[in-house]
Simulated scan of single mutants.
Amino acid sequence: MSVQVRPEGPEDEGAVAAVVTAAFTGAGAEPGPEAAFVHELRLEPGAYLARYSLVAVEDGVVVGHVLASRIHVGQAPALALAPVSVAPTHQRSGVGRQLVERVLAEATVAGETLVLVLGDPAFYGRFRFEPASEVGITGPYAGAEFMARRLAADAPVGEAVYSPVFGRLEAGRL
């Protein structure tokens, strides 16, 4: 399998919606709240950062997508990694790993200091994410799934404040 990771382009929006939907609800399903979440983040002033919206492509077909958007911890900028989506046919093949590694590399090069994620500790632990509470970060999420990856020694601590789009997703209003 030869998968290439590249920035998402405007022409990829429909394919991204299909991959996000398939990853969370199954192939052929109607677009669900996760696809609406990605769309709404693209429209949210200050939240969408095009450099952190990446697609995995195999033979010209989008098979994965990752998005990191702007949030704040205290007054400092940080990133929220969500969602990471891989087509069911490509899950457990390394595509998700490639996407996460690439977005973390892009964030590091850009001088970002902190990335937060709500996800499986077994998966994200591979990328040196650790419980957010252990590094001094609080926020709307709790538990072992609320994780942080410090990209710099001066990464902020404090309360994480997310885009309102996250709240609308949780409330089922997308």
Rank of each mutant, 00 (worst) to 15 (best):
P10M: 04
F24D: 01
P164Y: 11
S163K: 06
V38R: 10
V66M: 14
V109G: 02
Q98S: 15
E40H: 11
G143K: 02
P131E: 08
A148W: 10
A153K: 11
L174Y: 11
A17V: 00
A152K: 12
A110R: 00
A35H: 00
T25R: 01
A110V: 03
Q91W: 05
P164N: 10
P7Y: 04
A122G: 05
A23W: 05
Y162G: 02
A22S: 15
P140T: 13
R128H: 14
G111A: 12
L118Q: 12
V62M: 01
A47T: 05
V157C: 11
S2N: 06
G14W: 03
G111Y: 11
Y162Q: 04
Y162D: 01
E13V: 13
R92K: 13
A160H: 04
A29W: 02
P83I: 08
P33C: 12
A87D: 15
G111W: 13
V95N: 09
V84Q: 01
A27M: 01
V165Y: 03
P121S: 02
G94D: 10
L116G: 10
E159M: 13
T25K: 03
A68I: 02
A160Q: 06
Y52P: 01
A78D: 05
L43Q: 15
V19G: 04
P31L: 03
V165M: 05
A155G: 02
E170K: 12
V62A: 03
A47L: 04
I137N: 07
E170T: 06
A36P: 09
Y124H: 06
H90F: 13
A17I: 00
H90T: 08
A82S: 14
V103L: 07
L54Q: 14
V55G: 00
G46C: 01
V115D: 10
A56S: 00
G9R: 13
R97S: 14
V84G: 04
V135A: 05
A50I: 01
P7H: 09
R126D: 08
G60I: 12
A82T: 08
T113R: 15
V115T: 15
S163G: 01
V115A: 02
R51F: 00
H90A: 12
V95Q: 09
